[in-house]
């Protein structure tokens, strides 16, 4: 096409080929006097709906093919399903569900108002850039993050680089945040399948418990100057307690699983005693 448009006065064969890509417009009339093609294509270059629907090429064709497959899959699944749609599946939104939700909401809002009336917030000194306070702390929900920033004692010093730290202590804390968020974000891509209960997957439940304990121990690390434990011991506890908690959880869940299996087996053999 690019070659042809530079020679607009050539044979009719090229012209029909060219026309086949549009809805059969007025290219011959719209042609300029031998110059290069106009930057803005004339209106009849726009594909018609028929042309669009055919989706002959490229990504649009692949999309179309996949959607066709997907629709067919849906139909097959629906045909194979034994699900029966019943007339009444639940309670009406009004009044049943609405009133229940209103009750829950007003209860919760009431609790919030009650707590804010009973426990008024503390208000401290005005800001003073000249005096560093003895205790710098964020709100409780950022203790874990502040604890990550206190991990500088374990920032590795590389002997090869003459005992220098590869990262500054602050950057080390930031990278720790990235690692934590990254691991949490990866969870659904690593753990798949239909298992839902912690008993079904002791490893992932143990990992979760270890994470929860880790966030608590990091919080304790953040308030280290209020904790009467030496820093070395505290750092060890920060990493050992989560592992310990994880192991205990794993053991407990495995045992529970054995218990379930034992129970199931016992019932089975009570029903069908071995001969």
């Amino acid at each position: 096409m690019t070659d042809d448009t530079h020679t607009p006065t050539d044979s009719s064969g090229t012209a029909t080929e060219y026309r086949a890509m549009t809805d059969g417009g007025t290219d011959d009339q719209a042609r300029t006097d031998g110059g290069p093609p106009a930057t803005v294509p004339p209106d009849d270059e726009t594909p018609t709906w028929t042309e669009r629907k055919e989706r002959r090429q490229g990504l649009s064709q692949l999309t179309y093919q996949y959607f066709e497959r997907s629709r067919r899959e849906d139909e097959d699944l629906r045909a194979a399903s034994t699900y029966v749609e019943r007339d009444v599946l639940g309670f009406p939104t009004w009044p049943h569900e609405t009133i229940r939700n209103l009750a829950i909401s007003s209860f919760f809002v009431g609790i919030m108002l009650l707590v804010s009336a009973l426990l008024p917030p503390h208000f401290g000194e005005p800001a003073n850039p000249g005096v560093t306070p003895a205790i710098i702390l964020p709100d409780w929900y950022l203790y874990w993050s502040f604890g990550l920033l206190h991990l500088d004692p374990i920032n590795p010093e590389i002997a090869v680089l003459g005992g220098d730290k590869v990262m500054s202590d602050e950057l080390y804390g930031l990278v720790a945040h990235g690692v934590i968020f990254g691991i949490i974000g990866l969870v659904p891509f690593l753990n798949k399948g239909s298992a839902r209960r912690p008993v079904e997957e002791p490893f992932w439940a143990a990992l979760g418990v270890a994470g929860v304990i880790f966030s608590v121990t990091l919080g304790v690390l953040a308030i280290q100057n209020l904790v009467p434990i030496g820093l070395d011991l505290l750092l060890n506890l920060v990493f050992l307690l989560p592992v310990l908690g994880g192991i205990v959880t794993y053991a407990v869940l495995k045992t529970m699983r054995e218990g379930y299996m034992y129970d199931l087996n016992r019932r089975y053999y009570m029903l069908r005693p071995p001969k």
Partner: peptide, 24 residues
């Protein structure tokens, strides 16, 4: 937490600035 501009707000923001500056 920063808005009341009390002592803890100021130093929390200070830590925030230091963290931001530590980013490569």
């Amino acid at each position: 937490y920063v808005l009341p501009w009390k002592q803890l707000s100021f130093w929390a923001a200070q830590i925030g600035v230091e963290m931001a500056l530590a980013t490569p």
